[in-house]
Design a protein around this nucleic acid. Structure first.
Lengths: 226, 226
DNA sequence: CAATAGTGTTACAGTTTTATTACAAACCTA
DNA sequence: TAGGTTTGTAATAAAACTGTAACACTATTG
C-alpha cells in the first residue's frame, strides 16, 4: 500500500533526517551507507523509489544508477540523485546516467518530498492515493470530503487529519503520543488527553445512526481504526 | 481528443514540473532531453504542439525548429520556444526561424498555459475547449463571457481567471497558495488573504438571487467550485 | 467489593480561521 | 488626462475550531 523508499547515503545524519520525515509521511524507508551493499539490498527489497547520493565510499552513486537502469527488471524504479552544491552539477546533468530527477544539497525537505511524490505519482499511482476507503468509510483527499456509506460527513480540520492518518494504516493501534506526533506535529505542546476529545468528536461524526463503531479503544495502549 | 504536447528541454526539473501540470490539465505529455532524439521522436509521435528549449546540449532548439518548419508534413505543428532571460535578441531570430510563440524563463505557469491554449485553439480548435460548464454556470473563452443559467454575469479579470481555473477541475479543493500560483502566477508577491477577497467578489458576482452557492470553503484547506 | 487507573463526556473560554468592508493606489480607456 | 475599474491590503466582525479541566463512567486488580 504505502510506497517503499530506499536511501543510499553515507552521511548518517542525512539518512536519519530523511528517514524520520518520510516515515512520518507514511512511507516505508530502508537505507544503506555502502554502495555495494545498497545495490544488493535494492534488488532484494524492490523499493518503489531510490534516493541516491552522488558521492559514495565504495561504488559511486552514478555506478549504482547505471547498473539499475541497465537492468530490465529494475530500470523502472525512479531514482532521485542527491548532489552536493557545486559538485560538478553540469557534469551530472550532462552525463546521461538515467536518473529521473536531481536534488541539490542542501535541499529543503518540502522540495524533496514534492519531487518524490511527483515521481511516485507517475510511476505508481496507487501509492499517492486520492480516495481511500476502509469498510464503508471513504475519504477523498481531492475534494476533501468524507463519506460513511452514501452519506457525507462533515469533519473539522483536526478530525479530518486524524481520520486521514488512521486510514493509512487501519487496524494498527496508535498511542496518544503517536497520534499527537503524527496528526498534530511533534513540535506542538498539547495534553495527551486532548486526543480523547478529538477521538470522541471523530466518533460522533462518523457513527451515523445504528452503524458499527469504527474506532477501537485499546486500554492503556491507544486507539485504532478497526 | 486531448492534445499531445512534446517537451524538449535538458533540465529535468523543468520537464517534471511542466509535465505534471499539463497532465493535470488533461494533456498527454512526452519529452526528451536530447535534441537529436527529440527530432526523431517528434516525427514519430506527431504531437499537437512542441515546447522547445532554446539552449540544448546536442542539436540546438533553433535547429530543431528549422527542421520541423522546413518539412511540409510537420510545419503545421505549433512551436513555443523557451528562452532564458537575457536572450532577448534571440527571440526575434526564434520567430524568424518559424517558432509560433516564445516564453521567457523563468515563466509563470499560467502564462505558459495561456499561450499553449491560444496556439492550440488556433491550430486545433477541437482540443482546447472554448465553452465549459459546471452546473448552471457557463464560461465562454472565446467571447470571454460568463453565464449563470440564462443570465450573463460581469466579472473583473481576476475573478474571471479564478473561475476559469476552478471550472477546469470542479469539486477539487485548492489552497490559497495553489490559487495564487495558478491564477496569479508564482512569481508574483501577493498576500494569501487577498484570495479571500477575490473569492468573495466572485461569489457575489455568480450568486444571483436565490441561486445555489457554488464555491465551497474548506476550513484550513482552501476553496473549491462545488 | 473497594480502590485505582484509564477512558468518556461535557461545557466553555480562548484562539484561529474566514467573511466582509472600506479605501488608496494602480490601471485602463476614451 | 479625467473618470471609472480593478486590485491588494488592512481593519473589523463573525464563525468555526481547539484545548483544557472537571466530572462521570468503566475496566482492572488485589
Amino acid at each position: 500500500m504505502n510506497a517503499k523508499i530506499f536511501i543510499v547515503e553515507d552521511e548518517k545524519s542525512i539518512i536519519t533526517l530523511i528517514k524520520y520525515n518520510l516515515e512520518k509521511e507514511g512511507y516505508k524507508v530502508s537505507s544503506s551507507e555502502n554502495g555495494e551493499e545498497a545495490l544488493k539490498e535494492i534488488k532484494e527489497s524492490a523499493p518503489d523509489l531510490v534516493l541516491l547520493d552522488w558521492m559514495l565510499p565504495n561504488l559511486s552513486g552514478i555506478e549504482i544508477c547505471k547498473q539499475l537502469k541497465k537492468s530490465a527488471q529494475y530500470k523502472s524504479i525512479p531514482i532521485i540523485m542527491l548532489t552536493a552544491k557545486g559538485e560538478e552539477e553540469d557534469k551530472v546533468r550532462g552525463l546521461n546516467v538515467g536518473a529521473d530527477d536531481y536534488v541539490t544539497k542542501p535541499f529543503s525537505y518540502p522540495e524533496l518530498l514534492a519531487r518524490i511524490e511527483a515521481l511516485l505519482r507517475r510511476s505508481k499511482p496507487s501509492v499517492a492515493q486520492d480516495v481511500i476507503s476502509f469498510e464503508d468509510l471513504k475519504i477523498d483527499r481531492i475534494t476533501r470530503r468524507v463519506y460513511r456509506g452514501k452519506k457525507e460527513i462533515s469533519l473539522g480540520p483536526t478530525e479530518y487529519n486524524l481520520l486521514d492518518f488512521f486510514i493509512k494504516n487501519p487496524k494498527r493501534v496508535y498511542s496518544r503520543e503517536q497520534l499527537l506526533e503524527n496528526v498534530w506535529g511533534n513540535d506542538i505542546n498539547v495534553e495527551s488527553r486532548t486526543v480523547d476529545v478529538h477521538i470522541r468528536r471523530l466518533r460522533q461524526a462518523i457513527n451515523i445512526a445504528g452503524s458499527k463503531e469504527l474506532i477501537r479503544t485499546v486500554r492503556s495502549a491507544g486507539y485504532s481504526l478497526d
